[in-house]
Design a binder for these strands. Structure first.
Length: 257
DNA sequence: GTCCATGTTCTTTA
DNA sequence: CTAAAGAACATGGA
């Protein structure tokens, strides 16, 4: 994707919106007769429709007039998000794995069996499965009772079936509650997402597990804060098969002097 | 001042 | 090739 944010206004001027879709974490606004306005919110991005009279908030990077004296506005204090112009939908596909809401367990199992990474790292890999972020990865793993450090390839059929269901359940629940917004996102009605009130593990380090009361733990996996219940999400590492004896690094230094 | 943050990408290291 | 770790991006809240 080439980021041509500065020229976007030129591209979209006077054109009718043909479709609005989502692919992974990308918002795709198709225009007539062709071309797509692609928006990624990053961590702090907001896409709003506001009255043209409304004062423009700081960090508003993109603004376009639509009908009824309204404006579509993109605001993003941290600027981890972005806006791109795509020629076609194929371009939006690049680097994205299957959709989390429709992937089938068999396919999920096959994808996970091909990597030895921690399951948490695999779930965050947009090329393996698209759309899951840090909050929902943690919540899904808790729901599926899988330890975030469990090697992806070692998950059992039962693990993957639970994970598949947990991913869909958590995402649907979050969507129903309009997301997890912690502080940076307020929707068009001035409401922040309510799913944060339903978080079972995310941001709850030290608090009792809602299932068993054990204090929740926080660790770092692939650079991201990771929350889990050590009791409900046990790590059963299969005993490592010994292929070779570990070679003696340095003989015990019994100094003869 | 400190630490942390819903994400991605690049570099370095093993 | 796989992967992990760290840094970078830029800003704000606790």
């Amino acid at each position: 994707m080439r980021n041509i944010c500065r020229d976007i206004s030129q591209q979209v001027a006077g054109r009718r919106v043909a479709s609005v879709k989502r692919r992974g974490k990308k918002i795709l606004i198709g225009l007539e007769p062709a071309g797509i306005l692609c928006i990624h919110l990053g961590m702090t991005g907001q896409l709003t429709v506001e009255s043209a009279d409304a004062p423009t908030k700081p960090h508003t990077h993109f603004l376009v007039e639509v009908d009824d004296r309204k404006q579509l506005r993109f605001r993003d204090p941290r600027r981890f998000g972005g806006i791109w112009w795509l020629d076609d939908e194929k371009e939006a596909e690049s680097g994205l794995g299957p959709e989390p809401l429709t992937i089938r367990p068999q396919r999920l199992a096959r994808l996970l069996s091909r990597t030895r990474r921690a399951i948490k790292a695999a779930l965050l890999d947009q090329a393996l499965i698209a759309g899951l972020g840090n909050i929902y990865a943690d919540e899904a793993l808790f729901r599926a009772r899988i330890h975030p450090l469990a090697p992806a390839h070692a998950l059992t059929v039962d693990h993957v079936r639970r994970l598949n269901r947990a991913i869909k359940l958590i995402l649907r629940q979050a969507i129903r509650h309009r997301g997890s917004s912690i502080s940076d996102y307020i929707d068009v009605n001035g409401q922040s997402g309510r799913f944060q009130n339903l978080h079972q593990v995310y941001g709850r380090e030290g608090k009792p597990c809602t299932n068993c009361g054990t204090p929740l733990q926080r660790i770092v996996v692939c650079g991201r804060s990771t929350h889990f219940c050590p009791r409900c999400q046990p790590l059963h590492r299969p005993a490592a098969r010994i292929i070779r004896r570990p070679r003696a690094e340095s003989p015990p230094a019994t100094d003869p002097g």
